[in-house]
C-alpha cells in the first residue's frame, strides 16, 4: 500500500470510528449498523461481479442462510457468538460451492434466472421448514454477540463489531485485488477464453469467487441476526437482492471504496426521502435511475471525474479496475 492510500484508508476509518458519536442513539445508529451490514453484503458481491464479472442475484440467499444458521446454532444449540459466526460461514461456503459448481457454465440472463431461483428457493424453504426455521414467524430472541464475557448488547458496540469485519474485508479485498488470484479473477472477467489460454484455471477461479462472496453474505447474515435478534423470511426477499446489486453498480462496480459508499447511499437514500411522504418511493426509483444515468462508473467514477475537473488536469483514462480500491 502506498502512502496516500494508507492516508485515505485511515481517513475514512477515522470518520467511521467517530460516526456513532454524531448520530442519534436509536434511529441513527440503527441505520449505520444496517449500512455496514449492507456494505459486507455488497463487498461480497463485488468479488463475484466487480472482480470476476459473474452477474448473480443470489447474495440475499447467502445473507439469509447465514442469518438462519447463526440463529439456529445460537438459540437451539446455544453456541456462542463466534460459533454461530463460524457456523454461518461454513454453511454459506458450502452453499456457495453448491450453487457455483452447476451454474458455472450459465451466462447472462440464464445465470441471473438460476440465481433468482436459488434465492427464492432459500426463502421459500425458510418459510416452509417450520421445525427448523420457525416458518413465517421466524426465530427471535437471538442472543447479542459476545466475545468471552464481553457482551455487545448495545447498538453502538454492535456497530464497532461490524466495523471490524468491514475493515478486515476491505483490507482483504484490497490485497486480493492486487494478488495473483485477484488478477486471475479480473482476467476471467475481461476475457474468459484469453484467461484460459494464459493458463488461468477458470472453473476454479469462478467457484472460488462464488464461495468468497457467499461467505461474506454469511458474515453479514450472522451480524444481522446478532443486531436485530430476529430473523424471518420477509427480510430476505428478491427486493434486497436487487438492492445489493444496485449498491455495487451505483457505488462503482470496480472500486472497493465505491462499493461501501454505494451501500451507505442506498441505505440512507430512502430514509432521507421519507419527508416527501406519499411520493418518496417513486422519487427513490427515479433517484436510482438518475445516478445510474449520470454516473456511469458509479460514485467512485463520479468522484474521480469531479476531482479531475477541479484540478483542471487532464489525465489519461486509467483502467478502473486497476485504479480501484482506494478507500
Amino acid at each position: 500500500m502506498d502512502r496516500r492510500s494508507i492516508l485515505g484508508f485511515s481517513g475514512a476509518l477515522l470518520v467511521l470510528l467517530v460516526l456513532p458519536a454524531l448520530v442519534s442513539a436509536g434511529y441513527g445508529i440503527q441505520l449505520l449498523n444496517m449500512a455496514l451490514i449492507f456494505s459486507i453484503l455488497a463487498l461480497g458481491f463485488f468479488v463475484l461481479f466487480g472482480l470476476t464479472g459473474i452477474f448473480a442475484v443470489s447474495q440475499v440467499a447467502f445473507w439469509g442462510l447465514g442469518g438462519y444458521a447463526h440463529a439456529i446454532l445460537t438459540t437451539r444449540y446455544h453456541w456462542p457468538f463466534l460459533g454461530g459466526l463460524l457456523g454461518a460461514m461454513a454453511v454459506t461456503a458450502v452453499a456457495g460451492l453448491l450453487l457455483g459448481l452447476p451454474t458455472l457454465k450459465l451466462r447472462n440472463q440464464y445465470l441471473t434466472m438460476a440465481t433468482i431461483g436459488f434465492a427464492e428457493a432459500v426463502r421459500i424453504s425458510a418459510n416452509n421448514f417450520d421445525k427448523l426455521t420457525g416458518g413465517p414467524n421466524g426465530i427471535g430472541r437471538i442472543p447479542a454477540p459476545a466475545l468471552g464475557s464481553l457482551v455487545l448488547n448495545t447498538p453502538v458496540s454492535k456497530y464497532y463489531l461490524s466495523l471490524v469485519f468491514v475493515v478486515l474485508i476491505v483490507g482483504g479485498l484490497w490485497r486480493l485485488q492486487r494478488s495473483r488470484l485477484g488478477r486471475a479473477m479480473q482476467a476471467v472477467r475481461d476475457d474468459e477464453l484469453a484467461a484460459e489460454a494464459m493458463g488461468v484455471h477458470v472453473t476454479r477461479i469462478k467457484v472460488l469467487a462464488f464461495v468468497l462472496s457467499a461467505v461474506a453474505g454469511g458474515i453479514a447474515g450472522s451480524l444481522y441476526a446478532g443486531l436485530s435478534s430476529f430473523v424471518s423470511p420477509d427480510a430476505f426477499t428478491l427486493a434486497v437482492a436487487v438492492q445489493v446489486t444496485a449498491m455495487v453498480m451505483i457505488g462503482g462496480r470496480s472500486a472497493i471504496g465505491g462499493v461501501v459508499a454505494g451501500a451507505f447511499l442506498l441505505t440512507y437514500l430512502p430514509e432521507w426521502l421519507r419527508d416527501f411522504k406519499d411520493w418518496y418511493m417513486a422519487i427513490y426509483g427515479l433517484g436510482l435511475l438518475v445516478i445510474l444515468i449520470f454516473l456511469p462508473e458509479g460514485l467512485a467514477g463520479g468522484a474521480r471525474r469531479l476531482a479531475d475537473r477541479l484540478k483542471r488536469v487532464k489525465r489519461p483514462v486509467e483502467n478502473v479496475a486497476l485504479g480501484g480500491g482506494g478507500q
Binding site: 446489486t245 427513490y284 426509483g285 436510482l288
Partner: peptide
C-alpha cells in the same frame, strides 16, 4: 436489471 427495476418501483 437495475434501471428497469428502478422504473418499476
Amino acid at each position: 436489471l437495475v434501471s428497469t427495476l428502478a422504473v418499476s418501483v
